[in-house]
Design a protein around this nucleic acid. Structure first.
Lengths: 213, 213
DNA sequence: AACGGGGTACTCTGAATCGAGTATCCGGAA
DNA sequence: TTCCGGATACTCGATTCAGAGTACCCCGTT
């Protein structure tokens, strides 16, 4: 009934925070930031207040009280409604059970790979690999801190998952580099050729290929 | 200079298509669809024309001619400009060399895992694993078709990468299921407890934890 | 006593996104 | 012959997003 627009997971975050106790939007943001959710969620004020307004319009949350302290702007405290609880539950169910395409930008980049000459690509991939290595090292350190602080794994599965994906990405990038360098990469001759004339831009040669499938 | 807003990779796709030869926007879309780029890119008409307008405003593409056939709507053919070529090159360089956070929605879901009872989570993760298995099987079939059609790997690295990530996700999900089921998952007692009273919604108990870090 | 930096709590605006809608043409079936 | 479905080529409006900006407070310094 109310699954009209389930785009922004920030709305789910709000619902779940208000599930714990009524809060005002800024407090929700502070809570999320304190729990490091800004690494898994696009958290910024413009979206936050927009999302809160939308949730209210859809009857998933309701203002409980508006108070003000001194001459500071009003704080509107919201509470989650019954249908809000149901929506949060359904949304979680969907998110966990059903994979979706998130269109990672590196995938897009790979799909345009022929646009750059293979030599440049190798250098850029090597740079990416380095960045990934650094990121993984930092993640490992954070993980150790979490363990030392006795923070149960339940509260950092999302980091663990991110690391798993990044490791897979790292492996893939390394393999790709190796194969291009070795010359064994299928399509390399054509790829080299279309970038042969110019130093670093090939204004020619459509990668027509044969119509796929 | 012109890296003002590099959000939507669809703009890069347009640039690269026009690099091959001048086209009108709809033709760009058709070309991209024919090459199965809609699996790596959010491709829809609303965004396409918006993106084209923005590229024109920024001087990265320029209208070459507007023609009409019969009483069909006008087709404006665009060509990429010199600065458009540079922008495409720089953008590609950035995309390939620098990892970014794409905020995958499953990561968000994992970060709210305590909101659902562990038993439900196991079932949902198992459903996800099944979906992933199907997807991987389909991807394998597509790959074999590509190989049989002698389509060089250069033209399906993006699919290969997607598969690598999905495989990592699959492995992670399986491990998670196993650990929760075995009872070895750290934090499971607390997790079970807060969902003990009610059948499937725990309106109580803030997962306060200790303040992280 | 005045000042500055950091935190609180939003507000505003312009851009981006999405999907439905429009209007036309074409080819084949009934 | 006429109708119908599908392709062509966009247009429009309603959200949604992003992030800079505003206004105030508190606290320590000079």
């Amino acid at each position: 009934m109310s699954s009209r627009k389930r785009s922004n997971p920030l709305a789910l975050a709000v619902l779940i925070c208000l599930f714990e106790r009524p809060m005002h939007p800024y407090e929700v943001a502070a809570t999320l930031r304190q729990r490091h959710k800004q690494e898994s969620l696009r958290l910024n004020y413009g979206s936050l207040y927009a999302v809160v307004a939308s949730l209210e319009k859809r009857g998933l949350i309701a203002p409980q009280a508006t108070m003000r302290e001194g001459r500071l702007p009003e704080r509107t405290v919201y509470a989650v409604t019954e249908s809000g609880k149901i929506e949060a539950h359904d949304w979680m169910t969907e998110l966990v059970s059903t994979p979706v395409n998130d269109y990672p930008s590196f995938e897009a980049a790979l799909s345009f790979l022929p646009a750059l000459p293979p030599g440049d690509v190798v250098d850029l991939l090597e740079e990416r690999a380095m960045h990934l290595k650094v990121e993984l090292a930092r993640a490992g350190a954070t993980r150790e801190l979490n363990e030392k602080a006795q923070l149960p794994r339940l509260f950092w599965v999302e980091d663990e998952f991110r690391v798993a994906l990044r490791e897979a990405e790292f492996d893939y990038v390394r393999r790709l580099i190796a194969e291009i360098k070795s010359g064994a990469f299928d399509g390399l001759e054509w790829w080299t050729e279309i970038h042969a004339s110019t130093e670093s831009q090939g204004t020619e040669a459509t990668p027509t290929g044969k119509a796929r499938r």
